[in-house]
Design a protein around this nucleic acid. Sequence first.
DNA 1: ATTTTAAGTTTACAATCGTAAACGTTTTAT
DNA 2: ATAAAACGTTTACGATTGTAAACTTAAAAT
Lengths: 152, 152
Amino acid sequence: MAEHVEKQITDSEWEVMRVVWAQKHVTSKEIIEVLEKKMSWKPATTKTFIGRLVKKGMLSTEAEGKKFIYSANVVEGDVIRETLHDLLDHICDRDVGNTIGTMITQATLSVQDIENLKKILEMKESEAVEDIPCTCTPGQCRCQDHSCGSRH
Amino acid sequence: MAEHVEKQITDSEWEVMRVVWAQKHVTSKEIIEVLEKKMSWKPATTKTFIGRLVKKGMLSTEAEGKKFIYSANVVEGDVIRETLHDLLDHICDRDVGNTIGTMITQATLSVQDIENLKKILEMKESEAVEDIPCTCTPGQCRCQDHSCGSRH
DNA sequence: ATTTTAAGTTTACAATCGTAAACGTTTTAT
DNA sequence: ATAAAACGTTTACGATTGTAAACTTAAAAT
C-alpha cells in the first residue's frame, strides 16, 4: 500500500475523487448530481473532470451492464500524503514541527484523536533527534547564517 | 498578525518567496542567483516570477539608492497556514486527526518539537470533543451512511 | 562620451485548469 | 419505430503557470 502518487490532482478534480472515494464505485450520474449541488457545476463541467481523471489514470472505468462504473485507482490517504509532502518541500525541515503545531492548534480534535496523537508522539520519541539539520538551499532559509530556532 | 492570504502562490513563486523571506530585503540579483543554482532557472524566468509576485501584491519594491529592493508583504507562516487550510478543505473533519498523525509519523522531529507538540495536545484536551461532526457534502464522505470511524 | 552591462518590463508560447457547449451513440420512453 | 433522454467524447476558450527571449532604460566601465 501507500503507492506513490506522481500525478497531482487539482482542487476541482479532488471534488470528483471524493465522490468516488465515498462510494466504492459510482456512475457519472451520481457524481454529477453531488457536484451540481455542491459546486453548482453544469453536468458538462463534471464530465470534463471525470474524463481528465480517467486520462490521468486516477479513475478506472468498467462497463458494468450497459453503462460505466467508475472507481478510484488511488486511495485518498495517498493523495493526502502526497499533498502534505509537497507542502513540506516548501518549508525548512527545522520548521516542520511548528507547522504541525499550527495544524493541531487550528484543528478540531476528538479525545480519541488526541489520545492517538499522543501515542504517536511517544513512539516518535525514540527516534527523536537533538537538532534537526537544515537542508535548505543557501539563501532560502536563515538557518545557515546564524543558528536560528525554528519558526525563525 | 496572521493576515488572511487570499492569493494562492504557485510552487515556483514559493521558491522566490523563500529567498525573500530568508533575507529581509533582497535585490533581484540575489534572488536570481539563488534560484539559478537551485532550480536551474534562467535569469529571465526568475524575473518573470518576481514580476508576477509584485503584481499579485506579495512583494513590495522600494527603490533603495538606485535599484530596487524587494520585501515580502506576507509572512511565511500565513502562507503555510493558508495552504494547510486548503488541504483540510478537501478532507472530512473527522479525518483531520489522522492526517496530522500521518504527518507526525513521516516527519523528522526533535525532542524539543515533540515536547512542544505534547504541550499543545494537552492544551487541546480541554476543548476536545467526544465526536466530531462530519460536515461533508452528502455523497462525498461515508460518515453520513453508517457511522464510520475516522480514516474510513 | 560611448559602449557594456544590469534591471525591470513586454511579449511569447505551450501546457494545464476551470468552465461548458456541441456532438455522436446508445437507451429508453412513447 | 421514432423521438427523447442519457452518457461519453470532442471541441472551445479564457485564465493561469512554467519557461524564457526581447526590449528599454539606466548605470557602470572604458
